[in-house]
Design a protein around this nucleic acid. Structure first.
Length: 460
RNA sequence: GGCUAGGUGGCAGAGUGGUUAUGCAGCGGCCUGCAAAGCCGUGUACCUCGGUUCGACUCCGGGCCUAGCCUCCA
């Protein structure tokens, strides 16, 4: 069994064979930190973090780089609007990004390079491109010369010549070819900038990923990942810059692109104003439910976000955690094997829906097993959940986290449950039901089981 | 206009040339003082029209529809 990956470059599923078994390199385009992340930004973070986990099971040394873009005109605009320097903005939103992603079970990448820390490398790369005749200076800008790179358009399957006809934006007069893109642009005094051979300025967006992936991963990397909307022009430009600067015939060997999160079938995007901010969603929903929903569709398919879908994800997790409730995490240090059906699904181009189906199959086995077999199956369910980033909380923590908008505290609830229990034993069912109804009215649902009575906050 | 993806049961969402996806909801049953929860059982769904085939939801072609990229965007 090997790992299969759909490669945007070939538009086919391919067997993943790294360049160097001992050093597997992955680069994912990370956030531009000028605002809170929306759930569409969270999808690649979740997916490619999972990719990293799947790779790490097989290869001893996987280096996963996910950058933070901390120089950008949108950041400048946000800073200007608040009258603060850009690092106030970038620090605030980078911190928020980390907190929000952690709530979704996303780990930190191996390296998290920032553009502002790689200005020298960026300038050096631009100089190399100019020296090799792949870039030119014009009116304080440095532009990449698309005409010099015949394979431009290979990833997105676009014809350079047709880009002129299709251009919907006014083309800057200093461009030699309409498809030429900015590597460096001049900064006025009020904008952040760095000294360079072309005057004080700042890097264009595309060049930073090229410079940082080369700095941390090498000239040729195994996997480059990002959202579908980055295929053109961002990734196309990265390929052009990197290959021309390094004189290689490959930049990234496998390209992976996630589909969009949609709302009412429309792409969620900041410009459409239909974004759902992770930070806000987390105030109402467990991060794990958001994660489950993000994993419930295959990463290359669109995922239509809705409150209904979120409730379904939460109900499913309720059942799963309910099964685990009587089986606390194993105290023995025995390593439990992850369900092979789940690893097989994940290794087949990250088929998370099939993996979740297998996880549910495991839950079914657990629920129907003989009592003696249950602890082992529960342990396996947890271990398997660990790979996909689910089911790692204590069940009691999962069920009590929805307490937020309930006025009763846990002790009061337990006391009422005890009173009801006594009433039931005394066969005073009118009183027992009164207590139950009272709790229900306050949003607490009673669940009687063979081992006693559990409770949880009612679904909204 | 160019280029990409898709159209699956009430909803979400995989997959396969002939065999149960899975989850949520629903229905029937067990359990329960009654419920809830849980457990058991339960649904021949695959846009349309042609073609290939012994056989197509699955392959090929046409059509219709939807979304995306071509401009900052995950």
């Amino acid at each position: 069994m090997s790992i299969r990956i759909y490669n945007t470059l070939s538009r086919e599923k391919e067997t993943f064979v790294p360049l160097d078994q001992e050093r597997v390199t992955v680069y994912a385009c990370g956030p531009t930190v000028y605002n809170f992340a929306h759930i569409g930004n969270a999808r690649p973070a979740v997916i490619f973090d999972l990719l990293y986990r799947v790779l790490a099971r097989r290869f001893p040394n996987v280096i996963y780089a996910r950058n933070i873009t901390d120089v950008d005109d949108k950041i400048n605009a946000a800073a200007a609007a608040e009258g603060v320097s850009i690092d106030v903005i970038t620090r605030r939103y980078a911190d928020a990004y980390h907190a929000d992603m952690a709530a979704l079970g996303v780990g930190r990448p191996t390296v998290e390079p920032r553009a502002t820390e790689h200005i020298d490398a960026i300038i050096a790369m631009i100089e190399r491109l100019i020296d090799k005749g792949h870039a030119y200076e014009a009116e304080g800008h440095v532009l990449f010369n698309v005409d010099n790179f015949p394979e431009y358009g290979q990833l997105s399957r676009r014809d350079r010549r047709e880009m002129i006809a299709g251009a919907r934006v006014e083309i800057a007069p200093y461009k030699k070819h309409p498809g030429d893109f900015v590597l460096w642009k001049p900064s006025s005094d009020d904008l952040p900038g760095w000294d360079s051979p072309w005057g004080r300025g700042r890097p264009g967006w595309h060049i930073e990923c090229s410079a940082m992936s080369a700095a941390h991963l090498g000239k040729v990397i195994d996997i480059h990942a990002g959202g579908q909307d980055l295929v053109f022009p961002h990734h196309e430009n990265e390929i052009a810059q990197s290959r021309c600067a390094h004189g290689t015939d490959t930049f990234a060997r496998y390209w992976m692109h996630n589909g969009f999160v949609t709302v009412e079938k429309r792409k969620m995007s900041k410009s459409l104003g239909n974004t759902l901010i992770v930070h806000e969603l987390l105030k109402q929903w467990p991060g794990e439910a958001l994660r489950y929903l993000l994993l419930s569709a295959h990463y290359r398919q669109p995922l239509d976000w809705s409150e209904t879908a979120l409730e379904q994800a939460q109900s499913t997790l309720d059942r799963l955690y309910g099964l685990l409730r009587d089986y606390p995490p194993a105290t023995s240090s025995d390593t439990v094997e992850v369900d092979p059906a789940v690893t097989a699904a994940l290794e087949d181009d990250l088929n998370t829906p099939t993996a979740l189906a297998a996880l549910n199959g495991l839950a079914r086995q657990l629920s129907t097993a003989e009592a003696v077999e249950r602890p082992v199956l529960a342990a396996r369910l947890r271990a398997t959940g660990a790979l996909v980033g689910l089911l790692q909380q204590a069940p009691s923590a999962w069920f009590s986290q929805r307490q937020v908008d309930v006025e009763l505290d846990e002790a009061a609830i337990m006391q009422l449950i005890e009173q009801r229990q006594q009433a039931r034993q005394a066969r005073d069912f009118a009183e027992a039901d009164r207590i139950r109804d009272d709790l229900a009215a306050r949003g607490i649902v009673i669940k009687d089981g063979p081992e006693g009575t559990n409770w949880e906050v009612a679904a909204k």
